[in-house]
Write a protein that binds this DNA or RNA. Structure first.
Lengths: 191, 191
DNA sequence: TGTTATCTTGACCGAATGGTCCAAAATCCC
DNA sequence: GGGATTTTGGACCATTCGGTCAAGATAACA
């Protein structure tokens, strides 16, 4: 009953995430957010309670659609080539001038002082690590990765690599260099 | 001639860097900065011109004393064990609750919109890559790393790993896991 | 059509922000 | 000791900040 919302929540959260990615949490003003989302302050506050609430909602939505804007999650049919492709996508997406990953920004800027944010980034990275682990086990099944390697360790290694590429790409390292590094890593764990 | 400064610039920049690491650029208020540095606004502005000028100066000082607070730079006598030790130090420093690296924060929050910051982080990471490359070449000389591997690629790989550990450590991944991942990577490139 | 309930818009608010300025203080050089 | 010169500390300023609120708009239900 009553007047229905005129906006699509997911679209709004995407727009808000874009602002937070470009300016960080503290650097994003309410005006930036109302402009990008097309909502007035009242609507924003009615729906999310506060700037912080909006940030958390944007973070949740961002995490739920896959960290770097990449939808990929690995399943038991994954091969080492799939892992490589995923890393290449991150390398490209991180060095093409687009704003940096919301998760990285949240970790650097807020995780230390903001428990709800810390919990979310921890959970999201745990999920990514689990996904990588599925891929590593699948690659071991296929004989692409030595069977005696610890899959949880290799998964952490791949996740570390992915996040490092994200930072370096935004710091000016070229996509080619990142891809070469990723290839070297994939080749090394296949040995 | 004239009244001498009462503060040590390096000490002030260290304190400012601490504030920026904890709160980011936009999230750090002038009050935070005057409190942490012990200087009044007049002194801060007289010496650095603006909040942004102070940030750049803090970034320069931070970079010049070695990225993560670690002084290490590799020379031709470096071994693979030295590289491993360095990575372990980063893993520990990133997962012990201390605020995140100023470079990572600067990259995520400002590099995309702030050319002077972008230039500085790019230069700093280039320097770190060069240092890693020296270490890789030295390890190749020692026969610890295959001679046919491309040292610039392995250097990028190690740098990527280091930055990734930094992010993940602050996101809640334990030091033990990061060390295990680093060990796996070092073992893999030694193969 | 009237009631009820929600949503939207934007004017408005107190507080905090980055930045300016100046009088007092401190040192050097004569 | 007396300029000259620079630093210091904090009062002060205009602006912007995140957030509130009231009045109108819109729809469901009776």
């Amino acid at each position: 009953m009553a007047r229905p919302r005129e906006f699509d929540e997911d679209t709004v959260l995407r727009a808000a995430a874009g602002v937070f990615r470009r300016h960080g949490y503290a650097g994003a003003s309410l005006e930036d957010l109302t402009e990008a989302t097309g909502l007035g302050k009242g609507s924003l506050y009615g729906a999310f309670g506060s700037k912080h609430g909006l940030y958390l909602a944007a973070l949740d939505a961002y995490a739920s659609r896959g960290a770097t804007g990449l939808e990929r999650t690995f399943d038991a049919s994954a091969s080492l080539a799939d892992v490589r492709d995923y890393l290449v996508e991150i390398a490209v997406a991180s060095s093409d001038g687009s704003p940096s990953c919301l998760l990285t920004g949240a970790t650097a800027e807020r995780a230390g002082n903001d428990e709800p944010v810390a919990r979310r980034v921890a959970d999201t990275f745990a999920g990514l690590a689990a996904s990588f682990q599925v891929a590593v086990r699948a690659a071991q099944e296929r004989g692409e990765v030595p069977a005696d390697a610890a899959p949880e360790v290799l998964a952490d290694l791949l996740l570390t690599l992915a996040r490092g590429m994200e930072v370096l790409g935004h710091a000016g390292v070229t996509g080619e260099r990142l891809v070469a590094a990723a290839d070297a890593a994939v080749a090394a764990i296949a040995a």
